[in-house]
């Protein structure tokens, strides 16, 4: 684990790219999940990634539009962001490296929608990852 001490949440984490243990792009840090521990302390528990989260964070007309598009494209009425437990974070630098491979993480709803309705319909698109 190689992380700065202290960690500035906005400067060091937000909007950074997330890559998995193989160096593959996972997404961006659009927000951070904080939880209150039993001792009343505030713990950073997860990285959140997704268009809906970014829209919520930006706020205003642009943020509402982004969230609305994310909801519209999501197969479920209440799309959940990609949630990466902070325990899986290995390195914090110009990018954030995880200790696990991307395959072990849940697929973001927007990516699932794009793959299902767009990429898979392109001739040869089902083999795009190969």
């Amino acid at each position: 684990m190689n992380q700065p001490e202290p960690v500035l949440l906005d400067f060091s984490l937000l909007d950074r790219q997330i890559v998995d243990s193989q160096g593959l792009m996972v997404g961006n840090v659009d927000d951070l999940e904080l939880a209150v521990t039993d001792q009343g302390r505030l713990q950073v528990t997860a990285l959140l990634s997704g268009q809906q989260v970014l829209g919520d964070r930006l706020g205003g007309r642009l943020g509402r539009w982004m969230s609305a598009v994310a909801r519209r494209l999501s197969p479920t009425p209440d799309p959940q962001p990609l949630r990466i437990p902070y325990d899986l974070v290995d390195t914090v630098g110009s990018e954030i490296t995880l200790t696990v491979a991307k395959d072990l993480l849940a697929e973001p709803p927007l990516e699932a929608w794009l793959r299902k309705y767009l990429i898979d319909r392109i001739p040869g698109g089902r083999d795009a990852s190969q």
Binding site: M1, Q3, E5, P6, V7, L8, L9, D10, F11, L34, T37, R41, L42, Q43, V44, Y86
Partner: peptide, 19 residues
């Protein structure tokens, strides 16, 4: 404008202060 977090003895990242 920012939140400062530090790792505790268990390696958990705890928010300790705000800028």
């Amino acid at each position: 404008v920012d939140l400062i977090a530090r790792h505790d003895a268990d390696g958990q990242l705890m928010v300790s202060a705000a800028l």
